[in-house]
Simulated assay, not measured.
Amino acid sequence: MHICFLTNEYPKKGFPHGGIGTFVKTMAEELVKNDVKVSVIGINYIAENEREVLNGVYVYRLKRSGAKGFSWYFNSRAINKEIKEINKKDPINIIETSELGLAFIAKIKNTKYIIRLHGGHHFFAESEQRKINIWKGFQEKKSFKKADGFIAVSNYVKSHTEKYLSFNNKPLSYINYPVNTVFFAPKESIKEYKNRIVFAGTVCEKKGIRQLIQSFPFIKKEFPDATLEIYGRDWFFSDGSSYIKMLKEKEIPHLGIFAKDIFFHGNVSYDEIPKAYSQAAVCVFPSHMETQGLVAPEAMAMEKVVVFTKLGPGPETIEDYKTGLLCNPHDPNDIAEKIIWVLSNEENAKNIGKNARDFVCRKYGLDKIVSQNIDFYFNSIKNK
């Protein structure tokens, strides 16, 4: 079987990537271990073609078009050309991508096209209460019509996507993201810092980082030595200005003397994330919206108590006060209350951490999730 993922986010040293890139890398390498050939095609970060084999995965990064207003056309044409060339040498059974990914992809006979619901334009437009962009909305609908099947990473993303888009009576399966519970495991050799609060993810409004910062003074009153460690890449507004800069200029100064205990570590490599989690007393991800998210179950797999959003798929990921804590991500007081509870209840927190790892191993374990995906791929191929 030959699977081809279409994504621009496949991890590349020196360049940032998001959760989709992490997911594809994890899944691709595990599929290779199961004797599945895997190709990944995407547009490069730079204006060059690059081809390499990484841990058995064939990665094709195509030269990015600089044609203003028409880059989508030239980039799509380059991807279609690469797919054809790869398919001639080694026929592709499955092409998988995210919600908008099939819009301008030409279909090949005997190849099945799968969309994995990572959270598309319609989904996030609803959650962020903004209007549908006509061009992106058109692409997403066009893409959905071409799909031969769908995979939802949570029940929440399925139910909220189908409010706006039809699955066109095509096969749909609910399969969680996989978590490498060997890579994300307790690290006894790394020191945990008392009262250290860790956030990881893109530093942007929808991840709830502003409300987490606003909660910090309440926490400091109870735990004066608490620190807030923020790991993740910056996000930029439409005018090109930095979200982190906005926080530093408009939010953090209001904290007064507490501001000195907030640290921005910037984008860190995937390999460094377990160390960041290991040093945490509590990991906090108060997202306004997620399709599922990887950071919460990854930290849980390391026996860390996670404070996660109670919105969206939060209740699918955490049983409150048993495998973690759920908070109102729009309420700094509630975020602070949950963090203070964790820091005040060390023994209970340890038990929650152990329960969290057990839960993640059962629900998100690599072997189980990879097997579910392979079964879905085989059924898709057999489905005429």
Rank of each mutant, 00 (worst) to 15 (best):
E346V: 05
Y60C: 00
V284P: 11
P297H: 04
A106Q: 15
V342P: 09
G312Y: 08
R130E: 08
I92T: 02
G312M: 06
I257K: 15
C204D: 06
S65L: 06
N133F: 06
K13S: 10
L255Q: 12
I262P: 11
V53S: 10
N195Y: 15
E30W: 05
T181V: 14
M300Y: 10
Q292R: 14
W135E: 09
A185E: 14
F150S: 11
L165Q: 04
N351H: 12
D375V: 12
T26E: 05
G42T: 08
Y277S: 01
E303S: 14
N87K: 04
T26K: 01
N34H: 13
V36H: 07
E251D: 13
E319V: 14
S166F: 14
G256Y: 05
I374N: 07
F263V: 11
R116D: 14
E96R: 06
K206V: 08
A356S: 14
V57D: 03
I175F: 13
V284H: 06
R130A: 00
K354Q: 10
M1W: 00
G149M: 11
G119L: 13
I151A: 10
L343T: 06
S380P: 12
Y164L: 04
K384W: 13
V57C: 03
F144Q: 00
V305F: 03
P186K: 02
S380D: 13
H288P: 01
K354S: 11
